[in-house]
Simulated assay, not measured.
Amino acid sequence: MATFGTLLFTWTRGRLVGTDPDGNRYYTERAPDPARRRARRWVIYRGKAEASRVPPEWHAWLHHTAEAPLNAVARWPWQKPHRANPTGTARAELPPGADAAGGQREPATGDYQPWRPA
C-alpha cells in the first residue's frame, strides 16, 4: 500500500497511464514542472510493494527507456510470462542439495580429480 503522501500526490498531480495484469497502476504527472527535464513516473502497487512485480514493458516506461508502455501482446513464442522474483518465499527455486530443500543430493560420480600444483 502506498503512503498517504504518495496517494495525495497521485490524487492532486497524477494522471493514470495504465495498469498491468497484476493490478499495479502506473502514473505520470499531469503538468510537469518546466524546470525539470522530464515528467515524473511512478507505480502504485496492488498489495505489497515489490519492484520485481513490475513487468518489463512497464519497467522500460518507468525508467524513461520508452515513451509509451511497450505492447505486452507482441511477445515471441519462446518468452515466458512475467512473474515476480520468488526468492525468500516458499516458491523459491532451490538447486539440488540445498539445505533449505533437505540437503540431500546425488552422490559424486567419482570422475572428479582436483588440480594439484606440481
Rank of each mutant, 00 (worst) to 15 (best):
V43D: 04
V43H: 06
V43L: 03
V43K: 05
I44D: 00
I44W: 04
I44N: 02
Y45E: 06
Y45F: 15
Y45P: 00
Y45Q: 04
Y45R: 02
R46S: 10
R46F: 09
R46L: 09
R46I: 00
G47V: 14
G47H: 09
K48R: 12
K48W: 07
K48G: 00
K48I: 11
A49M: 07
A49W: 08
E50M: 11
E50T: 05
E50H: 12
A51K: 09
A51I: 06
A51V: 09
A51Y: 13
S52W: 03
S52V: 05
S52A: 10
S52I: 04
R53A: 14
R53F: 06
R53K: 15
V54E: 00
V54Y: 04
V54D: 02
V54A: 00
V54L: 08
V54W: 01
P55M: 05
P55T: 03
P55D: 06
P55V: 05
P56N: 01
P56I: 07
P56W: 10
P56G: 03
P56L: 05
P56Y: 05
E57H: 15
E57T: 08
E57L: 06
W58M: 14
W58C: 00
W58G: 02
W58T: 03
H59C: 03
H59T: 04
A60F: 00
A60K: 02
A60L: 12
A60R: 11
W61H: 03
W61L: 01
W61K: 03
L62Q: 03
L62G: 01
H63P: 02
H64D: 11
H64T: 05
T65D: 09
T65A: 10
T65S: 10
A66Y: 01
A66T: 15
A66G: 07
A66N: 10
A66I: 02
E67G: 15
E67Q: 15
E67Y: 08
E67M: 13
A68I: 04
A68R: 09
A68L: 09
A68E: 13
A68V: 15
A68H: 09
A68K: 11
A68S: 11
P69Y: 11
P69E: 07
L70Q: 13
L70V: 08
L70M: 10
N71T: 10
N71W: 08
N71K: 09
N71E: 15
N71L: 10
A72I: 05
A72G: 03
V73G: 01
V73W: 06
V73T: 14
V73R: 12
V73M: 07
V73Y: 04
A74K: 09
A74I: 06
A74D: 11
A74M: 06
R75M: 12
W76H: 13
W76Y: 14
W76F: 13
W76S: 13
P77E: 10
P77Q: 05
P77N: 12
P77I: 10
W78C: 14
W78F: 14
W78E: 11
W78I: 09
Q79A: 08
Q79D: 12
Q79M: 09
K80S: 15
K80E: 15
K80D: 15
P81S: 10
P81M: 08
P81D: 13
H82K: 07
H82M: 04
A84C: 11
A84S: 14
A84E: 12
A84I: 13
N85C: 15
N85P: 01
N85A: 12
N85H: 11
P86F: 04
P86E: 01
